[in-house]
Nucleic acid binder design. Structure first.
Lengths: 109, 109
DNA sequence: ATCGTAGGCAACCAAAAGGTTGCCCATTGT
DNA sequence: ACAATGGGCAACCTTTTGGTTGCCTACGAT
């Protein structure tokens, strides 16, 4: 039996998305090409360590993944989580939709 | 000419979504019915003031709106922002899709 | 008139977040 | 062999966040 997995909360993912710098990193990674930390640091306006910290936050939320190649570590987007997050927003919206429909029905009856 | 509005960052919205308690408040408000602070406090596990603070954060992000009726203030969902947030996630994903398509095309050529 | 209920305001607190710097280690190219 | 480049670790600092409590005000019902 597929054992309904305990619905894990999307809050941490949103929290990770809730920072300008991290969003910028994500969109850059959204380009598809895995990027190194130095690359990501260039033009970011913050220090390399700052970037590293942000990347780790993103990784902690499962939004990004890294792999080492030689002396550099390459980071790339983990799209699954992004979609999960989107779905979470849909849930709230849908709930709202249902409520409105019910109301409409009630009024028109 | 419709003057392309300077793309305002969705980060604050995500930041607002990045908290368990606030997500719970949102889903409750997603029920459609406007709820008072006391109502929302009941069973929330945090104090009334705590709830108030969270509601204000949500309001600050434009995710929720309040109106006073008599001695109570009623809060309801502001769905527009929710959709904007979802769209932001789509943007990153789409960007990724485009990149993948390009790659595919390149490989298959 | 006054009591109970709904909230607002302000002060306070501990912990987390965002950022920095300094120093060390590993890989690579010459 | 060694310099240069890419990163990791740790310490440190300031601001923000999430929460509390105490007290005051406003409305509503009796």
């Amino acid at each position: 039996m597929p054992q309904r997995r305990r619905t894990e909360t999307p809050a941490p993912v949103f929290a990770a998305l809730g920072d300008e710098n991290r969003l910028r990193l994500l969109t850059r990674l959204g380009g598809g090409e895995p990027l190194s930390i130095s690359r990501l640091t260039a033009g970011s306006g913050i220090s390399r360590q700052g970037v590293t910290k942000h990347l780790r936050v993103l990784a902690g939320a499962g939004l990004v993944r890294s792999s080492r190649r030689g002396k550099e570590s390459l980071w790339q987007l983990e799209r699954r989580r992004l979609e999960e997050a989107r779905r979470s927003l849909d849930l709230i919206s849908q709930q709202w939709d249902v409520a409105l429909d019910k109301l409409k029905l009630f009024v028109e009856e």
